[in-house]
Design a binder for these strands. Structure first.
Lengths: 124, 124
DNA sequence: CTCAACTTGATAATCATTCTCATTTTAAAC
DNA sequence: GTTTAAAATGAGAATGATTATCAAGTTGAG
């Protein structure tokens, strides 16, 4: 990855804003000081930086929402090779919620866990 | 919620397809037998059914991705009132991953936990 | 300095989803 | 069974987030 002023600006803006901004929020922030940075450049750099592990993209699955007829508490595993979504049940996770609630003081009304990796079939 | 043939079709299609389809996949599936069901109706019914707790929408945060400069292992809490995203650290979660890997046989290379609820400020 | 590889800006294109609105269906009351 | 207001529909326009296109500018190894 070559150096570029714009990428530095994007990374700095992200460092200075601990609010977990969306791309759009970041765009607004950057516009104030560097109005010449285009949206395309911003998105490109966010992807590249995330790809390189320098920043992290926070989201569940891909773009579009998946729907599930099973409303019981369970989680999901998405295979990075075949894209299939599997159900995962875990009772340990209850503890995580309880512990987190105690430690943070937040009232937690819902949670979602998404695991990623290779499913059995794709490990072959 | 009144009865409607279309809603029944949507729900049945979801019951019969355990693949956690996206709205778009569901649309294709439904088109085969019921080409008169429009996309608007599909999306509307998915929202309504999810709202009523009959089905579940699987996704992380809202529409747009958030970015994080902190690439260390940590999770997120999103306040449903003010929309702020907070960092959450938990060591218990390690167990969940290990246990899940053992139970499922999947190779888990990443995971993401998103908690939702009310932050301290918004509980007042 | 030179040139290929990398980046950029502007804008068009795409994809998922929501909105609009005129028309149709549902269900409860008569 | 007819009336009628609320709920639901279909078609397509509108929106929002993100990606693609492409000509022009920048970077860095040799």
């Amino acid at each position: 990855m070559n150096y570029s002023k714009q990428r530095e600006v994007v990374l700095d803006a992200l460092k200075e804003n601990v609010i977990h901004p969306t791309a759009e929020q970041l765009y607004s922030i950057i516009q104030i000081e560097y109005p010449q940075v285009s949206k395309a450049t911003l998105y490109r750099n966010l992807s590249q930086l995330a790809e390189a592990g320098i920043i992290k993209k926070i989201d569940g699955l891909e773009m579009s929402s998946h729907f599930d007829h099973n409303t019981h508490l369970h989680y999901h595993f998405i295979c990075e090779k075949c894209g299939r979504v599997y159900d995962v049940t875990s009772n340990v996770a209850e503890d995580v919620v309880k512990k987190t609630e105690e430690e943070t003081g937040f009232r937690i009304t819902g949670h979602e866990i998404v695991f990623k990796g290779l499913c059995k079939d794709c490990q072959k």
